[in-house]
């Protein structure tokens, strides 16, 4: 647990016309800036830009900083992406490298 961790609850709101309460509320849980969490964030950003432009908000939660938050969203794997909105809540675990699976997980594509 190195003290250099920062960007607690980074909030990235994409798209100029993003409203106060965007249609898609996503939260990415990571534990420190590991290559895997950075890759997850990159992959998520790309997918959102491609499919949800202007309708999403990504919040990054670093559990090394805020371990208590892990309980609320029932996080056990890292990284985990939680789709808070639209409901129902969905979870995608892993570095989000498989775009197809992410789209299925986010209900942007029908399950095969």
């Amino acid at each position: 647990m190195t003290p250099q961790r920062k960007k607690v609850g980074r909030r990235i709101t994409a798209g100029r016309k993003a409203s106060r309460s965007p249609e898609w509320d996503l939260r990415l849980y990571v534990a420190g800036q590991t290559p895997r969490s950075l890759a997850a964030f990159r992959n998520l950003k790309r997918i959102c830009e491609e499919h949800l432009q202007g309708k999403y908000r990504i919040e990054v939660v670093d559990l090394l900083e805020n371990p208590t938050l892990a309980r609320g969203d029932q996080i056990f794997a890292i990284p985990t992406l939680v789709r808070k909105l639209p409901e129902p809540v969905r979870k995608i675990i892993g570095d989000l490298s498989n775009t197809e699976r992410v789209l299925v997980g986010l209900d942007l594509r029908a399950r095969a």
Partner: peptide, 16 residues
């Protein structure tokens, strides 16, 4: 509720 894609570990559990 869970979809798995790519690599992960159980750091969340450890941290909790």
């Amino acid at each position: 509720q869970i979809e798995e894609t790519g690599e992960y570990n159980l750091d969340g559990l450890f941290l909790r």
